[in-house]
Design a protein around this nucleic acid. Structure first.
Lengths: 222, 222
DNA sequence: TTCAATGTGTACCGTACCGTACGGTTCATG
DNA sequence: CATGAACCGTACGGTACGGTACACATTGAA
């Protein structure tokens, strides 16, 4: 594994960055977090990372390539712990809570917010390259992981639903609510919403009341 | 009704735009929707709206003022119908469903997406003027309206919760889920998610299962 | 030592855009 | 008709940034 990587599958191609390049990308992330897209100029990055603009263009092609590299690089650093199969209801629920906890932690992170702002800000034209990249490397992988977890729960009889994707979306909605968009817009979250532990367990509580095995009605019932 | 409007609350100050200025702002919105922030240049707007750059600067100060004016103008056009008090459970629920329907309709609109992208894209620096403006004119007013509606439902005995803000956020999460962020990133929604009617009634179903008067447990259990 | 490869630092060019200035036009008013 | 205000169209200055070219430093191998 982790050879030169045929680019048909997504994940580890991002690891094909030289340590030097990773250092530069790290510096780019820093600039991006503290100043936004406007602060990430080629000259500024070159100065800040002690490298030459020529190297930047040699490595990443052009500025868009640099931005894409930053997104790929950061995405490659986020890994959701894939816990072993849960045999009993209690540990499964704790796994699910841990997942939601991790999800909230990632979404509210400063670098995640900065990258989402970057990708959204230039998803206006119909190309939306960065947006698609972020969806692919971020949301889709997380969604896949979540669906697997939920389906395992259904198989074990802890959960009850028809469409795993829809169930995941509801879980996402219960956990994130409008906190993400508010933070993207620069709102400071209330102290109550900073208690990730509580928010995660609250969301799982409510999710079980909708999709738990003992819930009165199944998910999509007409 | 619909007279000059007393300016007791924040919103209608934005109506202080000359018809000519409104036409220009409408044109700016058009440019913004189809091309994003990059497409909204002062020269381009002047050419596209058949006005002079000098007028733009006279009216809006500078480019940031223009962007703020666009946001204010669009926000002033969105009005959530404030329905009369519902006396019976069925009509209240239909009012709630209508609210969610309207919420989804606004959020998925192209102009709303474009403005959110604009505000998010430049909410990187800690100033985030546009972000705050959008939060104030958009989310906060909607949230206020929603809380009033929910509290009316609680007063009538149709709903059961402690914190209206939290109940609203859950309703928002159930309705919007991750559709908004996906669309902001340029994702095309699935056909299933384009059925706003169904999504609204599904969200209200689930909301009632969590906060309905006959729900097994009240909101913030423990 | 010589040579090639890689990378840094800097200078430079073209372009895009913000903001302003100026001449010309319409229109209302006395 | 004269006058002034508002506005259009355009041209111009200033600047910031993307991208390229070039001179110099470092390293490693023959």
């Amino acid at each position: 594994m982790a050879h030169t990587a045929l680019h048909d599958s997504l994940p580890d191609e991002a690891e094909a960055f030289t340590p030097r390049q990773q250092a530069v990308l790290e510096c780019a992330l820093k600039l991006l977090v503290e100043g936004g897209e406007k602060a990430l100029t080629t000259a500024g990055l070159a100065r800040s990372a002690n490298c030459s603009k020529e190297s930047l263009y040699k490595w990443f092609g052009d500025r868009d390539g640099l931005l894409a590299a930053v997104v790929s690089y950061q995405a490659s650093k986020v890994h959701f712990a894939s816990e072993g199969a849960a045999t009993d209801a209690v540990t499964f629920r704790s796994h699910l809570t841990a997942f939601v906890h991790e999800l909230l932690g990632v979404l509210t992170g400063e670098t995640s917010l900065a990258l989402n702002r970057l990708a959204i800000g230039q998803s206006n034209r119909e190309d939306a390259r960065l947006g698609r990249l972020l969806l692919l490397r971020g949301k889709y992988t997380i969604s896949t992981r979540a669906r697997a977890l939920l389906e395992a729960g259904r198989f074990r009889g802890f959960l009850k639903f028809e469409d795993a994707e829809e169930a995941y979306q509801v879980l996402y909605g219960l956990a994130v609510r409008d906190q993400h968009i508010r933070q993207l817009l620069g709102d400071k979250p209330r102290t109550k919403d900073l208690d990730v532990d509580r928010q995660a367990s609250l969301a799982v509580d409510r999710f079980y009341r909708l999709f738990g095995a003992d819930a009165p009605l199944a998910g999509g019932g007409k």
